[in-house]
Structures are given as structure tokens and as C-alpha cells.
Amino acid sequence: MDEGMIIELGQQTMLTILIMAAPMLGFGLIVGLSVSIFQTITSIQEQTLTFVPKIVAVFASVIIFAPWLLSILINFTTSLFSDFSQFIQ
């Protein structure tokens, strides 16, 4: 296993992590921005108001995107195990 294979494996791993985290981060960002705008408009300065909607949005996005995330994870794991003989050498 040479340096090129290690770098390629690391790049694939990081790309898979970013793709899997993107829906949750996106929903959290959108909900956080919406709550912040709502707080600014209504002059409500309650700090706990921002956390609960974000948590609900992240859990909802996990439930919504779970089949897609699972297929990405299965494809990555399958490709990793199919190339396992190359990693041993």
C-alpha cells in the first residue's frame, strides 16, 4: 500500500463524512437562521429558544435522510471491503 492509495482512501473517507453530515448541518443552519431572524424581529432574547428547534430539525433530517445516508454508507463500506486485498499488500 503506497502513499497514493492512503491519500485516495483518506479523500474518499472525508468526502463520505461531508456528504453524510451535510443534510443535518444544512437543516440546522436554516432553522438557526430562521429562529435568529424571528428573535431579532420580535426582540425576544431567550437563549434556549434557539436550541430546541435546531435539535428537532437535526433529528427530523436524520429520519428523513436515513435511507439515503445508509445507502451511501453501504456503498462506501462495500467499496472499502472489495479493495481490501490491495490495502494488505
Rank of each mutant, 00 (worst) to 15 (best):
D2R: 04
D2H: 04
E3K: 15
E3S: 12
G4L: 11
G4I: 15
G4K: 13
M5Q: 12
M5G: 05
I6S: 12
I6Y: 07
I6K: 00
E8C: 03
L9N: 06
M14Q: 07
T16M: 06
I17D: 04
I17V: 15
I17A: 00
L18E: 01
L18A: 09
L18T: 11
M20C: 12
M20K: 01
A21Q: 00
A21L: 10
A22C: 14
A22S: 03
A22Q: 08
L25K: 04
L25C: 03
G26D: 08
G26N: 02
G28A: 12
G28V: 04
G28R: 03
L29F: 14
I30S: 03
I30R: 13
V31T: 00
G32D: 01
G32R: 09
G32W: 07
G32T: 03
L33S: 06
L33W: 12
L33R: 06
V35C: 01
S36H: 15
S36Q: 12
F38G: 07
Q39L: 10
T40K: 14
T40C: 13
T40S: 14
T40F: 14
I41T: 13
I41L: 10
T42H: 00
T42Y: 01
T42W: 09
S43W: 01
I44A: 00
Q45S: 12
E46V: 07
E46R: 08
T48N: 09
T48H: 11
L49E: 00
L49M: 14
T50M: 05
T50Q: 08
P53K: 00
P53R: 06
P53V: 01
K54N: 01
I55D: 07
I55T: 00
V56H: 04
A57V: 06
A57F: 04
A57P: 01
A57E: 06
V58S: 00
F59C: 09
A60K: 09
S61N: 05
I64S: 05
I64T: 15
P67R: 01
P67Y: 03
W68F: 14
W68M: 13
L69R: 03
L69N: 05
L70Y: 14
S71D: 09
L73I: 03
I74F: 13
N75W: 08
F76L: 03
T77L: 11
T77M: 10
T78L: 12
T78D: 04
T78V: 14
S79D: 08
S79M: 13
S79T: 15
S79C: 07
L80H: 03
L80E: 09
F81L: 11
F81P: 01
F81I: 02
S82V: 13
F84N: 07
S85V: 10
S85D: 15
S85L: 10
Q86H: 14
Q86P: 00
Q86A: 06
I88L: 13
I88C: 09
Q89W: 15
